[in-house]
Design a protein around this nucleic acid. Sequence first.
DNA 1: ATTTTGAATTTTGTATACAGAGGTCGTTTG
DNA 2: CAAACGACCTCTGTATACAAAATTCAAAAT
Lengths: 230, 230
Amino acid sequence: MTELAVFPGPYPGTRPPNRRRGGLADDVVLYVREQILTGALKPGTKIDQEALAAALDVSRSPIREALVILGQEGLLDLIPRRGAVVADLTPEDIVDHYELFGVVAGRAAAIAANSLSEDEIDQLRAIHERFVDGTSDDLSALNWAFHRIINRTAPRRTRWLLRLLERSVPADYYEFTDGWDAQAVRHHAAILEAVVDRDAEEARRRMEHHLHESGVAAVAHLERQGFWED
Amino acid sequence: MTELAVFPGPYPGTRPPNRRRGGLADDVVLYVREQILTGALKPGTKIDQEALAAALDVSRSPIREALVILGQEGLLDLIPRRGAVVADLTPEDIVDHYELFGVVAGRAAAIAANSLSEDEIDQLRAIHERFVDGTSDDLSALNWAFHRIINRTAPRRTRWLLRLLERSVPADYYEFTDGWDAQAVRHHAAILEAVVDRDAEEARRRMEHHLHESGVAAVAHLERQGFWED
DNA sequence: ATTTTGAATTTTGTATACAGAGGTCGTTTG
DNA sequence: CAAACGACCTCTGTATACAAAATTCAAAAT
């Protein structure tokens, strides 16, 4: 028996009165993805298109497009003629996902070690120092900026895949809780060092390790949050 | 000035009168993807939804869902409020794509080297021998079967990503032309050997190399086909 | 009691309708 | 003559309508 989906209302106070950048489908994707990754929607739950449409006050057209996107991301299983179901997301899946993230980001890091300009390396160092410092109000932004500089020099398709892998996984939800940030600082320092040394293989290994540990942290966090309780 | 899309008719004699497995969107995806990967639709070409709908004799609903999927695959650029455009697909993109394919398939091969049962290795060997033999009428199927056995033991998310990477790139279009099959035989033999030796690192390297060379072959093939002519 | 059957209902997939953003092209104005 | 403007048309995004597959549920049969 598949559980029935019950949708909390749309983002409280969201929906900036008039600014609409993409289409409604994008909003729906963000909403449903958050519901899934925070555990509000449990694996196996069937998505009722009309209920979701009513909850977000849109028609089924943008809903369907959103479901297709989430299906492509692997967060939903789309079964023809019988709708969308929240995909299973086991600890093994999370670990595996971060491992994949690791090999791709590792490739990017290896390329960066060879191709970053001295100028860009300086930027990287500057950001890292603010990250180490820890007084910044937005560590998440600094973390993002660090990886951005590295990923920016990767070829187009690699950047595309990194964006894809980044989206379909909990990130903001666990980052910078507990001791994760201290660990991240050490990892970033090691990666930076390898980049400065222009040691592509070492940069790759350290980036893979960084992402691997991130996966472990993500699983631990989700477990603490009761993500896998019923 | 963006070029206007002109669509050849649907698959000649296709559309099995009554059997419909997925939805119409799947058909549209297949059709447009083929148009793009064969070069019938050039990068920069704008996709006219109505024209495409008319050409395939369906409504815009399945068309839009298909465009979303192809957008996720990176074959189309979806620009809000101004439609879908065939994405740029340079030789560098192809090479990069296969390189990514390589690191992911390499991970799968490393896992396979550690986890394939003796029985599965025997299957692998059997398939490879038929592949070497070359008398089979369907080398493509044998190639597919070889990789399938290796990928089958990879964790779920890795398999998901492999399927994704496999789709959004020319494959059938270039495989087994020229001397590619002879090269593939050598690569497969090397991979098989590493798997038999349970040498995960070597299996990874050889799989990466195999995919790298496949990318080179794909680019060469596309160039011969005039994919990058105007 | 469990399984089977079949109408009633729900829900998906597809088609169609409609409003507004975006593009076109000729005209006006400096 | 070039740039700016604006009426007109096109196309996208969203909503709604409709046919058919899937599910539900109660009565009948084993």
